[in-house]
Design a protein around this nucleic acid. Structure first.
Lengths: 186, 186, 186, 186
DNA sequence: CATGAATGAGAATTCATTCAT
DNA sequence: GATGAATGAATTCTCATTCAT
């Protein structure tokens, strides 16, 4: 029973995220989501109080997803080069493997009514803690958290958004990694 | 026969962009836009065939706006440091002075049904041409266009999105500028 | 979960048909129909996918109505005179007793976008089967189905459409019946 | 100048009739008609006070068209057989050669708000006068005008409406002609 | 818990018509 | 006379949500 419910809620989330990838945030109506999830519209209101709350709640949850994904790939004993490479490649492969979640979070984070509810900081805090330790150890240069986050995550997301790269993905990524290594490492 | 009122169309665009800043892309209905612009909903259809086309058309037009804004501030005879500072500060002040257009473009460019209609490249081409000349002259390091664009524009936009900075805006920006100067200049 | 209210759907059909009698096919808007049926406009879309489909579906159903009405009045053991009289009088009284359905079907069958969806043949087939048997028995002359249908149904409908007859309805009808008996019986 | 105007009004009529053939009476909006006619919507109001009046006026005019068409084909000195053949074939070929006008009149004559404005009688009066003379001369049997009209015009129009005939058009028509000759001639 | 029916409010869009030129 | 812009009212239809089961 418990599993059944969990599963149903998960199907709703998946449906919403998939739909928003396909049709944009304004194309995802409750009934479409319900149909995509294979449940009744009314069922959605068993799990969420309103569409607004559903969006916000799932946005809050999925905002952390890319950082969780990263945390499973980085190790505290990596050297600086590897850390940066792992982060950049991780960001990129997350956007490929979880295209729907990536697009969902990108869209929500630009929507003024949603973004104010979730702060970037609390999502990336684990990664930032790790980075702090590298800074303390004198491996990474010491810049403000926002700027480190800005250069580590924004450019690779920018590339992930604009699929059509001139050169191969691999070359593009490698170059960016080298750039960021030069920028951030001593 | 009345002539098409140029001013009226501009009011419609402004209203749309303002509304999307306030309520997000899914909160901007045709009637709200009309009310905000002080025209009848039907009038909007004199200028655009559909809401979808209106969004796309205005998105296409305004996508270039930040780059045009930049082009008016950079000079080909600037030294490398100043060029980067001007670009980064320009990006940031555009986002402040034209908050609505900035937010509008950010939102549209994340919406899958809209973004595929406008390519980043063709918007930034003038700036990229300028950068090429600096690269040729041996002032800027030679990286691929996408990566240069990614590090020059994405981080500062990221900061502009997440208003609430720990330190002062000025310090934050200065630091980012110094980082990018170190990264991109010989 | 509420069950689909059979009665509600019938009220919608009735309302539509009544309205089309009063205001013509182009005067029957979804909201007027809803008001006439005492339901919300949205409810109509629970039962039909679109106005077009609603019209077509109800047209298809009601196209058979006059023929069903006739079938309940004719008997296989009637003599030829009585058969023709029953058919003609049946057609006429149907148009009087079910003025709305009659007018509805007449209007729809002239509308090019609707008429192509419903064939006259499949509606009148039962009556035609009966007529075939009278032809086989040598009671009715053998003409093609279309021509038999044309002379049996079209003239009386024509009279039913143009209410204002010179002489009394009864005399008019009796004469037509005598004409068709002479034409169709040996 | 005069010709120009006449021509423009004719183009409007043609456009309306054509559109109603294609999309039905409820698909013919003023702007569509204007576009089809190649004029401005406002121009239509130079010639007609309202859409309602336009429809009614053109309906009134075109109601007579099939009878005028017939009158040009019948001659007072034809024998009875030829008269009936000419009328029936004339009705049918009119429906083929002027498909749009035929469909337009059929649709309007079933629309309750329009049909009450135009009486069948005054349209067919010339033909009926001719028929009267044949009746006086003892060629045609004497039935009431409505019944004569009903059997002479309704069946062939019925065939014209339901294009898809089993046998060839020619055989179908010939048979109907023979039937009506037998019915109406001494 | 789960549902499909039901709906008031509002969406996008079109309508018939008028107005200023 | 002729026009395209402009619009209030109405169109078809969808939305987020609730209700009865």
């Amino acid at each position: 029973m418990r599993l059944k419910d969990q599963d149903k809620q998960q199907r709703i989330k998946d449906a919403m995220v998939r739909l928003i990838l396909r049709e944009g945030i304004d194309g995802a109506s409750v009934s479409k989501i319900a149909k995509e999830a294979g449940v009744s519209p009314a069922t959605i209101y068993v799990y969420y109080d309103s569409k607004e709350e559903m969006l916000a709640e799932v946005f809050r949850e999925y905002s952390r997803a890319p950082y969780r994904y990263l945390m499973q790939r980085v190790r505290p004993d990596m050297d600086g080069d590897t850390l940066i490479e792992t982060i950049v490649r991780g960001c990129y492969s997350f956007s490929r493997e979880h295209e729907d979640v990536f697009s969902f979070v990108e869209q929500c984070s630009r929507c003024p009514t949603l973004s104010e509810r979730v702060s970037e900081e609390e999502c990336s805090c684990d990664i930032l803690d790790l980075i702090h330790s590298y800074q303390t150890r004198g491996v990474l240069r010491t810049y403000s958290d926002w700027n480190v986050g800005a250069v580590l995550f924004a450019p690779v997301r920018f590339l992930a958004m604009n699929r059509c790269m001139q050169t191969s993905e691999e070359d593009q990524l490698s170059e960016l990694i080298r750039m960021l290594q030069a920028l951030l490492l001593y």
